[in-house]
Design a protein around this nucleic acid. Sequence first.
DNA 1: AAGGTATTTAGAGGATTTTCTAAATACTTG
DNA 2: CAAGTATTTAGAAAATCCTCTAAATACCTT
Lengths: 92, 92
Amino acid sequence: MGFAETFKALSDPARREILLMLKNGKMSAGDIASNFEMTGATVSYHLSVLKKADLVYETKQKNFVFYELNTSVFEEIMLWFAQFKGEKSDEN
Amino acid sequence: MGFAETFKALSDPARREILLMLKNGKMSAGDIASNFEMTGATVSYHLSVLKKADLVYETKQKNFVFYELNTSVFEEIMLWFAQFKGEKSDEN
DNA sequence: AAGGTATTTAGAGGATTTTCTAAATACTTG
DNA sequence: CAAGTATTTAGAAAATCCTCTAAATACCTT
């Protein structure tokens, strides 16, 4: 899956904001873009980064492209972090 | 604290590997460096990125610099991810 | 088919990142 | 203090990233 891609995707504030917007359900590319100062082309670039990182997926309807959170990847990241919680590996 | 810095720090494979090395306790800069092909200067750069992101802290002893995980930041990141688990914000 | 709306792609510019070598700093010990 | 070890800083080169404008694609509606 690629933690490098995932964390790089998460390192940009605009992309993190997009993810937060998507918490409540899918949104079209245009609706997402309207929340930013950047051009639609730039937002489209950020969406493609999130998509490559599997943090979102897209579905098409009419001439809209909807984006949605892919929560399964979030779980994988949580697992990665869980390694650091608590146990040093030679305890117990 | 700065999620941008944190996630950017985590996006590099060498830096993630350093964090894993530190799971079992502190290590000196030199001991960390000896696990990589890169020059010591480059490893030092990576350590400084991790330090700026508050993922590690350093302590000096003799002429060694020891690095250690700062687990509190990991908890903050876990909290950030927790937002995405489950509840859509207008439920309940 | 033509015109309109939604979105992506291409290409370029500027900024940031990663790595190196060489030099500097810091501390220790004879 | 001098010499040695450990580490960081400075500066430069190559790679990657973010943003824009302009053009292309895709789909819908009349």
